[in-house]
Design a protein around this nucleic acid. Structure first.
Lengths: 334, 334
DNA sequence: TTGTAAGCGTTATCAT
DNA sequence: ATGATAACGCTTACAA
């Protein structure tokens, strides 16, 4: 453990004052070119590295942005993180990644913690357990830039980046209708979350537009897992469904598994469309038609919204909608 | 943007001294129970949040750990991150995630940046472009705890967490031999990286132990992508291979695609085993036998190694080997 | 152009 | 048990 040199060390060796060294290094304020060169040379010589902690304390703000997600190792979220990182890091910001495991308790802990660390901003997709925007409100009221994404309380201060879930679900359902499926059910998520509510609405719209009945007995809540897909596929068949639009690809996978186990041919006898376009969607047999989320783009948009708000461009759009794209494959084609 | 209360504010309202408030809040040093209660009550009342930046400056160290990975949105790495986070966050540390895109330039930038931010430690899997441990050496010599994982320079200070790639590749190859494949090739990665060198060695060992020839003409470098798997499968067939052990699942996927396009039956005519146990391995048809990396466990071990070194338990193992597990499915069974 | 001095919020080390 | 003081390393007015 070796002592790290400070601007005071540089100043001493050069018979200058720390403030002069600071000005030379940061480029703020007038410094002679010669001294500037001397300072830089000495800095390299001593292996100087600015102490950001001290700098941040003095400036009252850090170059850190917190990103709060339910689970890091879900492809959607890690793609968002990756996208945000690719914008923020070159812009000189650090990204602190926190996961909440979809628990309100963890969410509270990590957000408090980020606040303690004086982050410049937060990019948050709140946990499913979080039903009130209370804590997030505190973020903005503390002067921290807030960007929500995917799951968002839209009436909060700051920006939010969401998928066009309505349009995505609409396109998926319409695709099935056009392929001749007559009784199309829906496996959804928690309908009190904006994401799933919008998908449900898009599904319903497509149905009604086509003159098909919207029937609650073939709409299933909390059904985005593989297990639930498998289980609810059985239920859907009892209700004479011939297709399902699933709000998640894993649910679609469960549906396909049940079909295989029961010799139901996909897409001939039964149609399925998923959401998220997980990696496996194109690899399974038949390949799964799915609505793509464009997670990376959401991360980029969220990061750019942060930068814009940070630099106080008042033109910041409050709500950024990232389009979804229906990736047509084999699971709902006939 | 509202002013955040400090310990000075609490002290003023209570006619105490900031130092007393600090002691009450941190629990370091003697404070009367009554004043302690008063301080806590007032802190809640004012919505006080400790300024970690100031605290860190004073203490000379932060509660932050940097994790440096090539790509965040690769399942292996996001699982490592998730594992590390699950240990570090409850222990009071923040995880700053940085990606290098496997570029030395980015790696240098992020490591410098973490150093500037006075992180307590770094958990690093170095980029493929990085062939010298120079910069990483600086990390330890700056008094920052260094834990390497997966790709590691083993002669550096600090701990490293690696998979038992030798044993994993050995088990995979042996499995194929036991299933009667006679001429087994290998699609590897960059053989100058420890990970791939070890897999090659394990493959070779299994071959030689079984009295099979190790033949360089059926060993392919830089071949862990899907494209390369497809391409080199053709080459391998020219060389009369009847099986391939792939250092990555995507390569194995490419192999299976070529087989399907050319009516080669897997596993009857040709055997394949992959590495990583990606999500799709169990979902494709036939399902892919693969060597599991246990990424989450690596993250946990890396984080625990950091904590141990931080608390100066001298018993810290320098090298932690996480076992790999052969997940037997259908792609090399007959 | 450079020097001086004060201060960011906290905590460690004294003294009381 | 509490108070006083200095210091962490840097930045920024202001003065020279």
């Amino acid at each position: 453990m070796q002592i790290r040199p400070t601007i005071v060390d540089i100043a001493r060796e050069l018979n200058l004052h720390p403030s002069t060294v600071s000005r030379a290094l940061t480029g703020q304020g007038r410094v002679g070119q010669e001294t500037k060169d001397l300072v830089f040379k000495k800095a390299v010589e001593l292996g100087y590295n600015c102490n950001q902690v001290a700098s941040s304390l003095r400036k009252g703000i850090t170059d850190t942005v917190g990103i709060v997600v339910p689970l890091i190792n879900r492809l959607f979220f890690s793609n968002v993180i990756s996208g945000a990182e690719s914008v923020l890091n070159p812009a000189g910001y650090n990204l602190v990644v926190c996961q909440t495991h979809d628990r309100k308790e963890d969410e509270t802990r990590v957000i408090r913690n980020l606040l303690r660390n004086q982050v410049a901003g937060m990019i948050v997709s709140h946990s499913l357990e979080t039903t009130s925007p209370e804590l997030l409100q505190r973020v903005s009221s503390n002067g921290v830039v807030l960007v929500q994404f995917d799951r968002a309380f839209e009436d909060l201060a700051g920006a939010c980046v969401v998928n066009d879930n309505f349009a995505g679900a609409y396109a998926a359902t319409k695709h099935m209708i056009e392929n001749g499926y007559k009784r199309i059910g829906h496996l959804g998520g928690e309908f009190n979350a904006n994401v799933y509510a919008d998908r449900l609405a898009g599904y319903r719209k497509a149905l009604e537009e086509a003159g098909l009945e919207f029937d609650e007995s073939i709409v299933f809540d909390h059904s985005i897992s593989r297990d639930k897909g498998f289980y609810n596929m059985a239920k859907a068949l009892e209700q004479k469904c011939d297709a399902l639009y699933c709000a998640g690809d894993y649910a679609a996978l469960g549906v396909m598994e049940y079909a295989r186990h029961n010799n139901i041919r996909i897409p001939e006898d039964f149609g399925v469309v998923g959401t998220a376009n997980e990696i496996f969607a194109e690899l399974i047999n038949p390949s799964l038609t799915s609505v793509e989320q464009n997670a990376r783009e959401m991360g980029i948009q969220a990061a750019e919204a942060f930068l814009a708000m940070r630099e106080e461009k008042v033109t910041t759009p409050r709500k950024i909608v990232v389009p979804m794209k229906l990736i047509v494959r084999g699971s709902a084609k006939r």
